[in-house]
């Protein structure tokens, strides 16, 4: 395997995780990752050699997500419905599956920027500066998105069961 492939492939698990957290369907998530990798291979010469490759890939993936899903999201709650009815998980303990439903349903109520900040910082372990670059926002704005997102998610998790039912209907 050549060097480019080695560099890229080590980040595929993280890309799949972020993509899955955004769309919550296995195939759709891998479609996003595939698009992202095609772009990355095509633009390989444009990356910053000394920059963070993972952040660069996550940026491409997120842009891809926004372009693909912007229209669909405008059409309504289709996504919320799907991910509540069909939580895809390999972990089958019943109590934890409720928790997943809740946290993913809760994430889904947030604007995309807040959702992405929470995922990039909390799960993908990007620094606040790196997350700011991925999102194309000043770091101060990223911190305030993070605050709002986490506050809303907390509220949702502590009081939001009824809200889930209302959305599913």
């Amino acid at each position: 395997m050549d060097e480019t492939a080695i560099h890229l492939e080590q980040h595929i698990p993280a890309l799949r995780r972020y993509a899955y957290a955004l769309v919550k369907q296995n195939d759709a998530a891998d479609d996003l990752v595939q698009d992202c990798l095609e772009r990355a291979v095509g633009r390989w010469h444009l990356r910053h050699r000394d920059g963070n490759l993972r952040a660069w890939l996550l940026t491409i993936l997120r842009n891809q997500f926004i372009n693909t899903y912007r229209q669909r999201r405008r059409r309504g709650v289709h996504f919320a419905l799907e991910d509540v009815v069909e939580p895809e998980t390999t972990d089958s303990a019943p109590d934890s599956s409720t928790a997943i439903r809740d946290i993913f349903a809760g994430l889904d109520t947030l604007p995309e920027e807040q959702r992405s900040v929470i995922l990039l910082v909390g799960v993908e372990d990007l620094s606040y500066d790196e997350a700011a670059r991925v999102l194309g926002l000043p770091v101060g704005t990223v911190m305030s998105r993070l605050s709002r997102g986490r506050a809303k998610l907390r509220e949702y998790l502590e009081t939001g069961r009824i809200a889930v039912l209302r959305r599913v209907k």
Binding site: A5, P13, R16, I100, L107
Partner: peptide, 24 residues
């Protein structure tokens, strides 16, 4: 929240990479 998200998504990242996503 952070821990729940990490836990729930950890399985995704440890799955083997599907063939179609290999760089080749």
């Amino acid at each position: 929240q952070r821990e729940t998200l990490r836990d729930q998504l950890a399985a995704k990242a440890s799955e083997p990479i599907p063939a179609r996503l290999r760089i080749s």
